[in-house]
Design a protein around this nucleic acid. Structure first.
Length: 287
RNA sequence: GGCCCGAUAGCUCAGUCGGUAGAGCAGUGGAUUGAAAAUUCACGUGUCGGCGGUUCAAAUCCGUCUCGGGCCA
């Protein structure tokens, strides 16, 4: 059976819908969330509960050690065999998650680009942005002209591709662009849509439940063994709560705000994936 | 009861010598092919607490009232 995709912003109810679809389509669930891949971050990343996992087989949850680092390429490498294995048993893979880039790689494939290099990145991070921009402009003016030059990440990545491959990033990326045209029409899936009011209410409920449900202990334990989760929403705020730098109320509101902003970015991303069928939900229901 | 300080965007606040107001945060929209829960761009009209007064002109000066906070009784 062809895979079925369930996307949507954080706290929109993807897990619940995935379970429903799994039952309907005789399926098994495959994670497409960057942080739910990690072991030990279950509470902060709002991974599916034990009960949910016992109903239907769930794959790719908690499969990475906290010290490992993931990227879109690695995700595809992990997901492809799992999906094929599910299909080989005559079941439908239900791919569920909110990491737009990871999903994009899975559905549309990767451009033939070199993998990121930690040492090179560290070196570039130490240089002024203007210098990186100037170097990119001289190595690959075409790529420079279509890159947001204020965005350090994007500039470094484009430069990294040129340096590592010895070719122009623009040429390599164009190769992928040309292959992507027909793929979308063969994909199927939902993107969950809720009103902002509804979504914000659900986010607030979830944050509260997270803080009451062991998130502090989780962050305390994790911060001893890895500094991989600085960018995880909730992690940094809770760590500063544990350090006594903020109070519980402020921590909760900071997590809510960061989560709302993330949800908005996800909506922007999925809006562009025209192949996703909108699934309008409005229930204010608890998680 | 008396005196002092405050009241400006959803929130925290700035606003020089009077020339009808602007930052941060929040919010909204966008970008986004190996860091993506990341990174990044754009968007600022609001009875300047109310009512009077002075002035060509008041958020700004004067009077008064209301609501906070503080000090003295």
């Amino acid at each position: 059976m062809d895979p079925y995709y369930i996307c949507g912003p954080t706290a929109s109810g993807k897990s619940a819908l995935a379970l429903e679809m799994a039952r309907k389509l005789n399926g098994e669930i495959v994670n497409a969330d960057a942080f739910q891949l990690y072991r030990g971050l279950e509470i902060v990343s709002a991974a599916p509960s034990e009960e949910e996992r016992s109903v239907v087989p769930h794959h790719l949850y908690g499969v990475l050690e906290p010290t490992e680092s993931a990227d879109a390429q690695l995700y595809v490498k992990l997901a492809k065999p799992v999906i094929e294995e599910i299909q080989s048993r005559g079941k439908t893979p239900i791919i569920t998650g909110g990491s737009g880039l990871y999903l994009k790689f899975l559905t549309h494939g990767a451009a033939p680009l070199p993998t990121g290099d930690a040492a090179l990145r560290a070196e570039m991070d130490a240089r002024p942005l203007e210098e990186l921009v100037a170097e990119l402009e001289s190595l690959d003016p075409v790529e420079a002209s279509r890159t947001a030059l204020q965005n350090r990440r994007f500039v470094s990545r484009a430069l990294e591709i040129c340096i590592l491959s010895g070719q122009k990033a623009s040429d390599l990326r164009d190769q992928w662009e040309s292959k992507t045209a027909e793929i979308s029409s063969q994909l199927q899936g939902f993107v969950i849509q809720r009103t902002r009011e509804d979504l914000h209410a659900r986010i607030a409920l979830r944050t509260r439940a997270m803080l009451d449900g062991g998130a502090l202990e989780e962050v305390a334990a994790l911060s001893k063994i890895s500094n991989n989760f600085e960018k995880a929403i909730g992690f940094r705020e809770i760590r500063s709560l544990l350090a006594g730098e903020t109070d519980r109320g402020t921590c909760e509101e900071l997590i809510n705000a960061a989560t709302r902003q993330y949800a908005k970015r996800q909506e922007t991303w999925f809006r562009r994936e025209k192949w996703l069928e909108p699934k309008v939900v409005q229930d204010f229901s608890p998680l």
